[in-house]
Each structure stands twice: as C-alpha cells, then as structure tokens.
Amino acid sequence: MRDGVLEVALVHRPRYDDWSWPKGKLDTGEDWIVAAARETLEETGLTVRLGRPLPEAHYLLLTKAGVPGDKIVRYWASTVTGGHGRLENEIDAVEWLDVTEANVRLDYAHDREQLRALVRAHTEAALDTWPLAVVRHAKALGRSDWKGDDRQRPLEARGRERADALIPVLAAYGISRILTSPSLRCVDTISPYAVWAGIAPRPKKGLSEEGHEADPDKAEQHVERALERGEPTALCSHGPVMGSVLDAISPRLELVGDGSVEMLERFVEARDHNLDKGEALVCHVAGAGADARVVALERHPTA
C-alpha cells in the first residue's frame, strides 16, 4: 500500500523481455512456500512474509527433450519485511505499480488471474493478513519406550529432522511469536525455529496434555488471546489438545467468496482426523480481536 493505494511488484526478465510476477523452480525436496520466499528474495532482493495463497497457473510448455509438459505455478500474496533490493538473478528491473498499470504491463493473460484475486481480497478487506500456525509436535519416542516423566519424553530422530524442516516453513510466514506446551516434545519441535529467529518461546500449561485434562478451556483461551494480539504466531501442542484449539478457530472461518468450500473441507479434515505429527496448519487471519476472520488455510504435512 502507498498512500492507501494497492501496489504490486512486477519483474522484468531480459531473456524473454517480459513483465511478470517473481517466480522460479523448486529445489529438490523444497516446500512450495519456501521456494516462493526464496525466489522472491533472489529475483527482487526483498525479504517477504507470505500471506494468503492466490490462484495457481497451469499451462503447457516444452521440456528440454521437446516433449509437452504441464507446468504448475503457485502464488501467494506477500508483504515486504526487509532486504537490500539489489537485482542479482535474471532480473534487470522491478517496478511497483498500481493495479491498473499492472494489468496493462503484465505480458501474460494467466498472470492477471492473480491480480484479480488480489483486488477482490483487497476490496473485501481480506488481503492484509497475519498467520496463526497451529503445529502438532513432531514424532517422539514411544510411550512404552520411555520410563521417565512423560512431559520429558524426547523427540526421536525423525522428529528432530522434522523440527529442523519447520524452520524455513515458519520463516516464510514471518512467525514472530511462539506459544508452546511446556512438554519437551513440543518445546523441541519449535525450538530450532525459535533459535533461528531469536524468539523466546512462551510455555503455556494449558497447551499440554496434562493442563488440558485439568482445564479443557485453557487451550481455547490461548487461541483467543493470540487472535486478540494479531501478531504472526505459532502455537505448538499435542494431538489430544488439537480439537479444542481448532474449536476456538472454527467460528472465525469466513465461509464466503472464492475458496471457501475448499477451506472448510481442509479445516474439517484437520479437525476430524487430527493433524499429523509435525504438521503445521496455517490460518491466514484478517483483522484481530472480535473482528478476526480466517480467510484462508494451508496445511504443511510431514514429507
């Protein structure tokens, strides 16, 4: 936004002499959102916080072998949070344009679909969002294999790998606040990102299995407080607590407009069948407090 006017960044590729959105290719094993944040930085020199997803683009192209193939490109609305702005990777110009100018400048019809989605979301006050990432702790040592206090049961090797893999995922969303069950398996799931980001996690007994059993309302209260703050937040808890966490989010789902049916289906699947261990459910929230509305959802399962 500049003086209340929505602006978007387009890039010019001298190789093709075209104007388009920043984009690129996935590295091996890379999450889509991680690639989106990385490619944006590489092409524009700008660090961004990813927001709500935008429509995908599908089109045919010839592979290096000359065989037709289907190309899928995924997009997200993003907000600039930093960066140096130097152009270093196949881009010779970046321009910020209002939506009318951008519509004219874009060289490909399929790129205008994302622009239209941005305008619709902006008109509905659902473009400026912040993320609430609900994370189930990663794979821990089995209860039968642990003889000590269950609250001190550690992650196993696969769980530690998943905890490390969550770093770029949470970084892409610009998570700046962390709430976690004090149980070691939750703390160790979220700690690698916390260390990377320089954030002190906030232990909450109400997010633990024991605390939830003693007072089932506490988990919902923690969600409500996070919604009141309106700050990019990750909340790490346990499978048996997820129902209460998602129950607190459920009334905030905005079930109107494009993608509402898919969002509801995604949410119901997570609520009824639980998140996988190490999975993150990212809720894109517009507004805060009583006005907070979840306008989009994304699931990031364990690979």
Results as ranks from 00 to 15, higher is better:
Met263Asn: 12
Ser260Asp: 10
His284Gly: 00
Lys277Ser: 10
Leu246Asp: 01
Leu246Gln: 00
Glu254Cys: 12
Asp276Gln: 15
Pro251Thr: 05
Val282Ser: 01
His273Thr: 13
Leu246Ser: 03
Val261Cys: 02
Ala270Lys: 05
Gly278Tyr: 04
Val285Leu: 05
Ser250Leu: 11
Leu275Ala: 01
Asp272Thr: 14
Leu253Val: 06
Glu298Leu: 08
Asp258Thr: 14
Leu281Gln: 01
Val295Trp: 02
Ala248His: 03
Asp272Ile: 04
Asp291Met: 08
Arg266Ile: 00
Arg252Val: 07
Phe267Gln: 02
Gly259Met: 00
Leu275Arg: 00
Asn274Leu: 14
Arg271Cys: 04
Arg299Asp: 11
Leu297Trp: 05
His273Trp: 11
Ala296Met: 02
Val294Ile: 13
Asn274Trp: 06
Val256Asp: 13
Glu254Asn: 13
Glu254Lys: 10
Lys277Pro: 07
Ala292Val: 11
Gly289Asn: 05
Ser250Val: 03
Pro251Tyr: 00
Val268Lys: 13
Ser260Lys: 08
Ala286Tyr: 02
Arg266Thr: 14
Val256Cys: 06
Leu255Thr: 14
Gly289Phe: 07
Asp291Cys: 04
Glu269Tyr: 10
Leu264Ser: 09
Val261Lys: 12
Asp276Ala: 14
Ala286Gly: 07
His273Ile: 05
Leu264Asp: 10
Ala280Ser: 14
Asp247Pro: 06
Leu281Phe: 10
Gly259Pro: 07
Val282Met: 06
Glu262Phe: 11
Ala288Thr: 12
Asp258Tyr: 11
Ser250Asn: 13
Val285Tyr: 05
Glu279Ser: 15
Gly289Trp: 04
Asp258Lys: 13
Asp247Gly: 04
Asp276Pro: 05
His284Tyr: 12
Ala296Asn: 04
Asp272Met: 10
Glu279Trp: 09
Leu253Tyr: 09
Arg266Glu: 12
Asp258Gly: 06
Ala280Trp: 09
Met263Gln: 14
Val261Phe: 10
Ala290Ile: 06
Glu262Trp: 12
Ala290Asp: 13
Ala292Tyr: 06
Val268Ser: 11
Ile249Tyr: 09
His273Met: 10
Val282Asn: 02
Arg271Val: 04
Val261Met: 11
Arg299Ile: 09
Val268Gln: 14
His300Ala: 07
Ile249Asp: 03
Asp258Phe: 08
Arg266Tyr: 01
